[in-house]
């Protein structure tokens, strides 16, 4: 399956680089990784979407849950450089107004 995750840390900020397609199958890997980061006390999370070609509602659901979790603990989440296809899905669902979206 065409999906990969890389993580790196800069100070208190964690960068998670996703690559490929985020769907009902691959999203379990994403959820597992994010949950591990949250369990380790991460409060600042940047998810790089510049190499994500496809996302569906299961991926969006993980982002929503993560944002809620971080906000409850005084943390923050940022979506970095979503591709036009991912941005379209964020726009349709109104999530572009919910998430902090930045471009590199």
């Amino acid at each position: 399956m065409t999906f990969a995750l890389k993580e790196s840390k800069s100070g208190e900020k964690f960068l998670l680089q996703a690559e490929g397609e985020i769907d009902v199958y691959t999203s379990s890997q994403l959820k597992e990784k994010i949950n591990a980061l949250l369990d380790n006390g991460v409060k600042e999370l940047v998810i790089d979407l510049s190499n994500v070609s496809y996302i569906d509602s299961t991926g969006l659901g993980i982002f929503i849950g993560t944002l809620r979790n971080l906000k409850e603990r005084g943390g923050r989440m940022e979506l970095l450089s979503p591709t036009p296809r991912v941005k379209k899905v964020l726009n349709i669902t109104g999530l572009d107004r919910v998430f902090d979206i930045k471009y590199a």
Partner: peptide, 21 residues
Amino acid sequence: AVPNPEDLTPGGLGLFLIKAL
């Protein structure tokens, strides 16, 4: 229903996406 950005839940977006696309 149209998702409410102020009260989002992890589920419920799929059918809305279908209808929009």
